[in-house]
Design a protein around this nucleic acid. Structure first.
Lengths: 346, 346
DNA sequence: CTGAAAGCGCTTACAG
DNA sequence: CTGAAAGCGCTTACAG
């Protein structure tokens, strides 16, 4: 008798009096195996507490059932929510998630190595400054990958919110409500999300012939937003509206306004982007544009799975429209917000 | 010539004119292989862009280099921060993290199955209502595992903050500052974290002969905290101090107070627990006890790695003292806070 | 419907 | 210092 390890196909085959091949087939519900044998094998497997060794199976089947995940900075709750939804959606599809990276810094090559070492089936990248080099690697090795909340590089797949439109829409709604001194607080400058949202915002202002009051960089963090807010509000004359390109910075701006005793939205309107949970907290009640996270994840997984079955498929870029969440931090005529819907598409 | 797949040890061995065994040894820096051969093999491997197949290696070495991770509810930023730190600490140790579960709900058996399917080396569990059944499984299969922020079950390892002491300490400091109408807002009732913090808080009050003003359940969420705050403050006579057993609920309580126009800390003191990032936001400036997350993770990994090399090691429970963060939401005489340090240990 | 054989890519005693 | 052989646990053509 073997040293008592976990049971293997061999163990089961001996117990059932059939060959290992048959055990394998029976366990994988191969239609060719007779009902009786199949039932018997499955019963014995269950009795023995048999668990298939995914490593061995992957080695031969050349598909590991593992998908790599690159997560952005979790201190922005948006990415935490995204992670939760990705996991919830992908688990029922029989795939496992392996964490490649968490955080704001550059993704290193070593993490990408593990993708190949562990023979991952694909890769999901949420933000994180991804050098085009990584996209290139995935391309070269035909590794299916999709980026969420990030613009496509090379021929990869990417799913985002209509960021440009969102920014445009916000400017439109603020201008229509009479604001004329509008400031923008951008995020990390090298991120497409930040760039596009701000570009849409500025473009709309430019079309309406309104000069931007000021532009700040808030580095996509609460602290950055707070600091930007303080500087904007400390001046003798302050803007009458601020667009922070993400919610976490908008919360900082709101706290700055609170600090300066400036009434929101009477003296100043503040609008964010993302609709993180904290945006709807009673203490903030932030007007913002909600990213359609569920839809974005669903679309991303569709793209990814399609490429896992057919790696020759070309990359696709998808944009999904966000939804205005009108709360208490901005003066916007509701009919004007509707007009905003006509903002030009990306 | 083989179909052009990724290079394997065989490819390299042919190119280098040595046996596969030698390639394997050279690549793993086996001291017995001569300098020249080793250098040559490594050079060729690099030239060919060789990446070892971790699956094949794991199959024979019986250690996969993968650690399973069970994450609590990421909508509580505490768990997001924890995840980030765990990843940052474990990656340099050459282990990979596979996501088993994210969220507040019960961990299902299926997720645990994958631990064995993928031959994981160990498992890290952060909160999440873990049935004792899961602990039992790890025990039975000798799977090294450590729980963070969670009390030990059976003989498993567990690392937490001194939760009981923290609660005691807070009550002590509030009472010493003259509060007499103290309410507690608990989290999900079945979590040890919530139970212990509240128990310490109540025990101290009892020792001082002060009756608790009220006890609420806030389900460990912002909304729950906000609701609890509203109910406590809507009454004709309201408490003069509230201890929310975690920060995310304390923020809800603070927003409720703001809503009711009740001055913090003049009319009411509010204290939380965890020291999540939002606790130090200008809009809250919450007095709380910081969990020593870095230290907790470090200790947890020590325990885990020790058991990965020697699975027979017994379980250990560790408690690490938190740190009072005195900010703006509570009246506490600083000398009294120091006295609080003497609160009894768990 | 079932089995014997080969093989996925690596490592590791066992020889020499 | 190096190689031939066996094996990790599974699946999958190939026969029958």
């Amino acid at each position: 008798m073997k040293k008592s390890r976990h049971p293997t196909v061999l163990t089961i085959s001996e117990l059932a009096g059939v060959s290992p091949s048959t055990v394998s087939r029976a366990l994988n519900d191969d239609a060719r195996i007779s009902q009786e044998v199949r039932a018997k094998v499955q019963r014995i497997a269950k009795e023995q507490g048999y668990t298939p060794n995914a490593l061995a199976r992957s080695l031969v089947s050349r598909t590991s059932g593992v998908v790599g995940l690159v997560l952005g900075n979790l201190s922005n709750p948006f990415y935490a929510e995204l992670a939760e939804i990705i996991h919830a959606r992908i688990a029922p599809m029989g795939k496992r998630l392996m964490l490649l990276h968490i955080g704001g810094e550059q993704l290193d090559m070593e993490s990408m190595q593990t993708v190949f070492q562990y023979q991952m089936d694909g890769c999901i990248v949420t933000s994180a400054s991804m050098s085009s080099k990584v996209a290139e690697i995935c391309e070269r090795y035909r590794l299916p990958m999709v980026m969420i909340n990030r613009v496509a590089q090379l021929h990869s797949c990417a799913v985002s919110c209509h960021n440009y439109d969102g920014g445009y829409w916000i400017a439109d709604a603020l201008l229509a409500a009479g604001h004329r001194k509008l400031a923008a607080v951008g995020g990390r400058p090298n991120t497409s999300t930040s760039q596009n949202r701000e570009a849409g915002f500025l473009e709309c202002m430019s079309q309406r012939g309104v000069e931007p009051w000021a532009r700040y960089c808030g580095h996509s963090t609460y602290d950055g937003g707070y600091k930007a807010g303080c500087e904007l509000l400390a001046a003798a004359e302050h803007p009458d509206g601020i667009f922070a390109i993400n919610d976490i910075m908008a919360l900082g701006v709101l706290d700055a306004a609170r600090e300066f005793g400036i009434k929101v939205p009477d003296e100043i309107s503040v609008v964010g982007f993302d609709d993180i949970r904290a945006a709807s907290w009673a203490g903030y009640n932030l007007t913002t544009i909600a990213q359609p996270v569920e839809a974005m994840v669903e679309r991303s997984l569709d793209l990814l799975f399609a490429r896992m079955s057919d790696p020759t498929l070309a990359g696709e870029e998808h944009y999904i429209r966000g939804e205005f969440r009108i709360r208490g931090t901005a003066r916007l005529g509701s009919e004007l917000v509707l007009a905003g819907r006509e903002a030009r598409r990306e």
